[in-house]
Amino acid sequence: MIPSAFEYHRPADVKSAVGILQAQGDEARVLAGGHSLIPMMKLRMAAVTHLVDLQDIAELKAVSIAEGKVTIGAMVTQHMLIDNARLAASVPLLREAALQIADPQVRYCGTIGGNIANGDPANDMPGLMQCLDATLGLAGPNGTRNVKARDFYEGAYVTACEDDELVVSVTFDVPKGGHAYEKQKRKIGDYATAACAALIEMDGGTCRSASIAMTNLSDTPIWSRSAGAALTGTRCDTEDIASAVTAALANINPTEDNRGPVAFKMHVAGIVIKRAITRAIASA
């Protein structure tokens, strides 16, 4: 459990960080909270020659809520998400989900940016960002470009982020309506067996919009356009919810692991999605 030797960098601003990435290419990795990367380095499953620690970059720790838009810096920890009263009031879904990530000690270190950028299908924030239709800010040599969270994930640990780029922020509209994040896991600290984020806006008993995203049920997070469509415009009765669940399940492709076989995961996914949708409607 000891990593190979590496060069440690600690830039004070994004520009310097990008400069190091540009100079070192794929031998460099950025370090946010370290709860994914450092265990991989210790197991020698990740070979990192240059480690670029982002903790001194103050500009990455800001949270702003203005004109209906929320922007969160990549180095904002899960704990800060939970602790920020304005954020909790504007985006209660985020707080609810963050509280289901690992345990308090991990949440003091783990960051929203790290959770998003690592491309681990088991991480909770990617599905959540897809549910919120967030835009990710990627800083690179040519400045910052925007990529939709729904377009960011290409495969397990493979994302749209280039070797010389880093995720600096997420931005999304303050969501309207009801919400829920349902997660089944084996224990505190475990990844999801199945998890689902739901945002549902109701208008006089009719669903105006619905956004459904799932975690750890495929090699990327899955936002189910068809599940949302199955609810939109309906009264969200039992049959409508069942259709949405069926639609969502058609989009996922879980694999067997120690959490259980595929049939179990599909069944649990159905339950979790249904519970998330039902609860989101109830709070809409």
Partner: peptide, 11 residues
């Protein structure tokens, strides 16, 4: 008796 084994009993 972890979750998937209990689920399997029920199934």
């Amino acid at each position: 008796h972890d979750q998937w084994r209990i689920w399997t009993i029920a199934n």
